[in-house]
Design a binder for these strands. Structure first.
Lengths: 121, 121
DNA sequence: CATACTGGTATACTTTATGTAACTGCTATC
DNA sequence: GATAGCAGTTACATAAAGTATACCAGTATG
């Protein structure tokens, strides 16, 4: 009987922070974006090569790479090879994302310790 | 005909980093966890109060709060009020998560600028 | 000319996430 | 004793995410 509608409060900059965090979340959300970023951070990959490397179907890979291109995280370069090939590489801009990944990595490792060694709350 | 199975590479600490990042990702993954953390960061809330505040159904809220309790991010305290009430609050431990949120917030804001003002890649 | 490689797309399907509605057990108030 | 509030739970329905399989157009090789 009840509808659960949008929040009524939201002071201005609180909402802005939330939006920023949500934006960032979308960059790495889902099963694949993170591993794609990490894989491409070692070197550029071709489409099929990347697909085989991380075990993702072409359908998903195509979609994910398109998202990441829109967000300026990867570049798509068509190479004039015998059978045409396409190279995907992280942009220089993508390096700015490392701060976020580092923060997540550090916290994640501490958290695993915290939960395993069962500290008090 | 082809199966897309697990990766074959994965140098040791690379895999460890990835796992840590994935762990962190799970903490904030989904539609609600983030806004719950942000809302509770101002003050403790009771169950229904929180439900109304952010517009989440009791079903989802219950599930999310349980997850977060397991991860030591919130505490659940039963209060001896006339109709019983239960207070949810962020733990002190949850404050350590602020580093991650801040990194995400900063990057998210820069990223919005970057995309809107259409800088070169 | 069949085979195999390239970078994908199309379709159908399963699984997971989220939403909706109704219901429980308790207490207080009208 | 009917109504309403609290803190949830349960069963069911839909939406989103992911998987599997097949296929296309192009080029080279045997």
């Amino acid at each position: 009987m009840k509808k659960y509608s949008a929040p009524s409060h939201s002071s201005q900059n609180c909402a802005e922070s939330r939006r920023a965090i949500q934006d960032t979340l979308e960059i790495i959300n889902g099963k694949w974006k993170l591993i794609i970023i990490i894989t491409l951070s070692s070197r550029p990959y071709r489409f099929k090569e990347l697909s085989r490397e991380i075990g993702i179907s072409p359908r998903m890979l195509s979609k994910e790479l398109q998202d990441m291109e829109v967000n300026h995280l990867v570049t798509r370069t068509v190479l004039a090879t015998k059978p045409i090939s396409v190279e995907y590489a992280l942009t220089k801009y993508a390096e700015t994302f490392r701060e976020v990944l580092d923060a997540m990595k550090n916290w994640g490792m501490k958290h695993r310790d915290h939960i395993i060694h069962g500290a008090a709350v």
